[in-house]
């Protein structure tokens, strides 16, 4: 499946900004079953300098700064992506993926080959997901038990988050602590992904945060609205001997071809679509629109 993704982020300031430094994680990375065919970024006003590099996790980071006075910042990216995830999706049915129990996984994590070493950093605390109170662990342990398959436990955790939590936008912000989301059982996709990650880490297994897009389909009989698609986030768990498996607790499914991956990290902090330091006074208003169109 080939998609054209248009992602527009607009900041409107109520007082002029003299200059700003920004970092964007918007260019989709290569990953299993996904290739980037074309990518363009357009920034207005034009940046004085712009560089791109690959970060520690292998994501594309675009850094730019604007030195002309402005009251609106608009960042538009157009990505053409081919997704063909069927083969990988099917591999999740294998014994290598499904049969590993938590005890076996924890034992395997004592090893120190390169894959294990790389995965182990995702057990540690991260900026937004600290080791937390007992609630998270108690919630996790309902699904994660020593002799149970890690895959089954993760699948059940995804289902439970999908049923137990309400999708309420505007209730949380990026600074809402995981504990509060757990207590209130409300949030958006970022919160659900981070809850799942906190749970998985609390039992000692590696989990990472995945940022991307999801294609939404219009209600039957209605035309699809431009810009109705969204920035999205989900989580991924590491199964030793097999590899990483993604789960989307917001939609209660394992991502296939409608999920487009941009980057991953320990939590939201590592892969914010756009962040920046702004010099000037006053407040900003943010507007994001994402449009995903099937080409073929």
């Amino acid at each position: 499946m080939v998609f054209n993704v248009t992602h527009i982020t607009t900041y409107k300031y109520n007082a002029p900004v003299n200059y700003c430094h920004n970092i964007a994680t918007l260019r989709p990375r290569r990953s299993d079953g996904q290739e980037l065919l074309d990518y363009k970024i357009n920034i207005s006003p034009g940046p004085a300098e712009i560089t791109e590099r690959v970060d520690f996790f292998g994501n594309f980071i675009t850094r730019f700064s604007i030195q002309t006075e402005h009251d609106t910042l608009k960042v538009t990216t157009k990505s053409k992506i081919i997704r063909d995830f069927g083969f990988f999706y099917d591999s999740f049915l294998s014994d290598a993926c499904r049969k590993i129990t938590m005890n076996e996984a924890l034992y395997a994590l004592n090893g120190n080959d390169a894959t294990i070493m790389d995965a182990k950093q995702f057990v540690l605390e991260s900026i937004f997901i600290r080791q937390t109170n007992k609630d998270i662990k108690a919630y996790a342990e309902k699904s994660f038990q020593g002799n149970r398959s890690v895959f089954d436990a993760a699948y059940e955790l995804m289902q439970r988050i999908y049923t137990d939590f309400d999708f309420v936008s505007g209730f949380t912000s990026i600074s809402t602590p995981v504990e509060e989301v757990m207590r209130e059982k409300k949030g958006v996709c970022q919160d659900f992904a981070q809850i799942a990650i906190a749970c998985i880490r609390s039992v000692g297994l590696p989990a990472r945060y995945v940022s991307g897009y999801i294609e939404t389909l219009p209600p039957p009989g209605k035309e699809k609205l431009v810009g109705a698609d969204a920035s999205h986030a989900w989580f991924s768990i590491f199964i030793p001997g097999f590899g990483w498996v993604d789960f989307d607790p917001t939609n209660n499914q394992i991502p296939k071809d409608q999920h487009i991956l941009v980057g991953w990290g320990r939590d939201y902090y590592d892969v914010p679509p756009l962040k920046g330091v702004v010099y000037g006074s006053g407040k900003s208003k943010l507007k994001v629109s994402v449009d995903i169109a099937r080409v073929a």
Binding site: Y11, N22, I127, V277, V278, G280, S281
Partner: peptide, 14 residues
Amino acid sequence: TDRQTQMFTQSFPI
């Protein structure tokens, strides 16, 4: 004296 502000304000609990 241009004040430095973040596009987002986020807590930094390190």
